[in-house]
């Protein structure tokens, strides 16, 4: 940014003028466009300054929200198609207890239980398999293949087996999460250099010690990669499984029934909860990754 400090003020003034002009003379579409341009200009200015790493994305998000609200109000989009953010916020505030119950049922009981079991099973299997080169060469392609399959499709089968409760959702999550975690962990455990393994041998380290001090730490970046994929998959699995049968509580149940009643603000409130849960759990894993694999180049580069 080569501009002087005062120039951004001019931009904002210009934007405000254009905004007023557009509101008076042009249709709502042009108004939305002008708002977009003005906020984008502001973002350009912000991106050139300190603290942009946090401010720029926030500003972009706010821009989207304002545009959404503007478009819905000015174009008078029916609520059935797309509710405004303010309507969604109202629905969210009015139905907090319901949304909380859904959250507990789907995320805490279904997704979290399944995620824990699936990830533990995936990592444990990987540790067992990694000892044998033969099994590893056989399991990696098969696991990669399975990870690419539409495993969500097993949801109707598992709902048939485990009933409508949260257990079947946890089962779906286990199946979905298992292969990505397995494949990533196996790949990670193999990611040690011959020199490092030789060093462990000269120390007279037992296989367990080699695993504890060499293979597991160097596998961590890969494991976290798998865990991150797993968090998103877990939520998807738990919600989609509810479409095939569920008690009268749960986020998937809420979304499908409220869509049926065309109560779209409530649907979007549920989606907001899902998005928050997804982003938060992803953030938690990323935070844990930064703490545990601070030595890895991908983490160091950020500082």
């Amino acid at each position: 940014m080569t501009r002087t400090d005062r120039s951004w003020l001019v931009w904002i003034l210009l934007g405000a003028l254009l905004f007023a002009g557009a509101a008076l003379w042009l249709g709502p579409v042009a108004l939305a466009l002008v708002v977009w341009l003005a906020l984008w200009g502001l973002n350009t200015v912000v991106a050139g300054r300190g603290g942009a790493r946090f401010l720029a994305p926030v500003l972009f998000g706010v821009t989207l929200l304002i545009l959404w609200e503007l478009t819905v109000r000015l174009l008078e989009v029916p609520t059935v198609i797309l509710p405004a953010p303010s309507q969604i916020a109202q629905a969210f505030a009015a139905n907090t207890p319901t949304l909380w119950a859904d959250f507990v049922q789907t995320v805490l009981k279904g997704a979290l239980t399944g995620w824990l079991i699936g990830c533990a099973a995936g990592i444990a299997t990987a540790v067992l398999v990694a000892r044998s080169d033969f099994l590893r060469r056989g399991l990696l392609p098969v696991g990669n293949f399975m990870a690419a399959l539409p495993i969500v499709g097993t949801a109707p089968i598992l709902v048939m087996w485990f009933g409508f409760g949260w257990e079947s959702k946890a089962a779906v999550v286990v199946v979905m999460v298992f292969f990505p975690v397995l494949v990533n962990t196996v790949a990670g455990l193999a990611d040690t250099q011959a020199m490092q393994r030789d060093l462990m041998r000269t120390y007279g380290a037992s296989p367990v010690q080699t695993l504890r001090y060499l293979a597991l730490p160097s596998a961590l970046p890969f494991v976290f990669n798998g865990l991150k994929i797993a968090t998103t998959l877990a939520l998807i699995g738990a919600i989609v499984a509810e479409f095939f049968g569920s008690p009268t509580v749960g986020m998937g149940f809420r979304i499908s029934t409220e869509v049926g009643r065309l109560n779209l603000p409530m649907v979007w409130a549920s989606i907001t909860v899902a998005a928050l849960a997804g982003s938060l759990s992803y953030g938690l894993i990323a935070l844990l990754e930064a703490r545990l694999t601070f030595w890895h180049p991908s983490q160091r580069a950020r500082r």
């Binding site: 984008w40 991106a47 994305p57 998807i236 986020m251 779209l264 649907v267 998005a275």
Partner: peptide, 28 residues
Amino acid sequence: VMDLSVMPWAIASQTIPILAIAPMIIVV
């Protein structure tokens, strides 16, 4: 600007269980 403002949202958009709201998109 796009790198700083869009990229975090592109990543965040994937933490949203989109597959779960697919039915709504279809119905709407």
